[in-house]
Design a protein around this nucleic acid. Structure first.
Length: 390
DNA sequence: TCTGGGGTCCTAGGACCC
DNA sequence: TCTGGGGTCCTAGGACCC
């Protein structure tokens, strides 16, 4: 007999806004949005009181206030949200070690082995009550035999919902849903699918011409068809979130940048903050990329692989400046971004370096020593004196 | 009064090696 | 002289998500 996994998708409702309410209960029942309080600002989140007025996340502040004049715009406090997020995951890990964080405010749990006879619905209800009581945070939970269905299920009732989506419910509950509500299908793909007559998830599940579909879904065609029929991976990997793939920062300049000097200043600040975060996480990077968006919204990016992993500020900044120089098109700049990829944990680098005998290592690659030096230097010293003097 | 900032993953082409 | 196929790494850009 095939054994079904029991997967939970636990999703904190209106997370940033809920954190603010938890900190300051007088905000409860008042419509609030999180974001920079300028007309051009964007709300990252709106609480449910605000959503009643048609305010949504990613909405422009000006538009949001038009819909809800009494809207309270609260500036974001990422440190606070990180703190709550950590407590959220800590709590989940007391329930099972099969916890895979999917973002700052959601996680997949495989509770198959942790029910101890408890009904999944009761278990979910307990999670919901615990989180509300201890952290003051509302969650929605999806219960399903795989990740995709669990994710779709947690979305069906918000806030404070618990939704079971079994494979046998798919035709009735999933198929009538609009294709745009399918996780993984975004606003570029939707029009393409509609072009070939796919309006609902059910349309996708029963579509006859796979070749036609593959034109738009590429390699993921089978995976999407499978999901639309309620199939999908049930694998929950607790270690997945530990391996960071990239660390980057970007900034939009509202008034645009016109002078090359200001652009370099901006890049320096971004590089500083990227390096600081690399150090905090004890990562070194082998690839660096610079992203530019011009005032006309055209975008360019350039990336280069370094000879060795590094998290040395001077070295990274030099690379960033070179990349930008070769990229820059003499236009006003709207956004700058610096990102590092190809990351490796510092302790891994030490291990790799230790395969060589010290003397041989010296001859082999002086660059390696530079990296080591910079790592040592920054272990016990605050960063970034150089960047600030400019 | 268009469009923030953090990410992940994918694709397609090219270089290079065996 | 022309022409393989597999694999890896790199780069630019794009789609999508929270």
């Amino acid at each position: 007999m095939k054994k079904y996994r029991i997967i939970f998708h636990v999703d904190l409702n209106a997370f940033f806004a809920s954190c603010e309410e938890a900190q300051n209960p007088t905000l409860k029942n008042k419509p609030i949005g999180i974001g920079k309080n300028t007309d051009r600002g964007i709300l990252t989140t709106a609480n449910y009181a605000a959503r009643k007025f048609g305010v949504t996340s990613a909405m422009n502040v000006y538009e949001a206030k038009k819909r809800c004049p009494q809207l309270l715009v609260v500036p974001g406090n990422m440190a606070l949200y990180q703190e709550y997020s950590q407590k959220f995951f800590e709590y989940l890990r007391t329930l099972t070690d099969q916890v895979e964080p999917a973002s700052i405010d959601e996680a997949y749990l495989d509770v198959t082995e942790d029910l101890n006879g408890e009904h999944p619905l009761d278990f979910a209800s307990r999670i919901q009550k615990d989180l509300l009581a201890s952290l003051n945070l509302p969650v929605s939970i999806g219960i399903a035999p795989n990740r995709f269905l669990a994710k779709m299920a947690s979305d069906m009732q918000k806030p404070l919902g618990i939704t079971v989506l079994r494979k046998r419910d798919v035709q009735e509950k999933l198929w009538p849903m609009n294709i745009e509500s399918m996780y993984g299908i975004g606003k570029k793909t939707v029009p393409n699918l509609k072009l070939i007559g796919i309006e609902t998830i059910g349309d996708l599940a029963t579509f006859k011409d796979k070749n036609k579909l593959a034109k738009f879904l590429g390699n993921q065609t089978d995976s999407f068809i499978g999901k639309s029929r309620g199939e999908g991976s049930a694998e929950v990997d607790p270690t997945r979130a530990e391996t960071v793939q990239s660390v980057g920062n970007s900034k939009t300049f509202e008034g645009f940048l016109h002078s090359y000097d200001d652009m370099l200043k901006g890049l320096t600040k971004l590089t500083e903050s990227v390096v600081t975060r690399l150090h905090k996480k004890a990562y070194a990077a082998k690839s660096v990329s610079v992203q530019v968006r011009y005032a006309d919204f055209t975008q360019r990016s350039k990336q280069v692989a370094l000879p060795q992993h590094t998290n040395d500020f001077d070295e990274l900044l030099e690379t960033v400046e070179h990349l930008f120089e070769s990229l820059y098109e003499e236009k006003a700049v709207h956004l700058l971004g610096v990102s590092t990829t190809n990351l490796e944990k510092q302790e891994m680098l030490f291990k790799q370096l230790n395969i060589f005998e010290p003397k041989e290592q010296l001859e082999k690659d002086t660059h390696v020593n530079r990296v080591l030096e910079s790592i040592n230097k920054h272990y016990d010293k605050p960063l970034l004196k150089k960047g600030l003097k400019k």
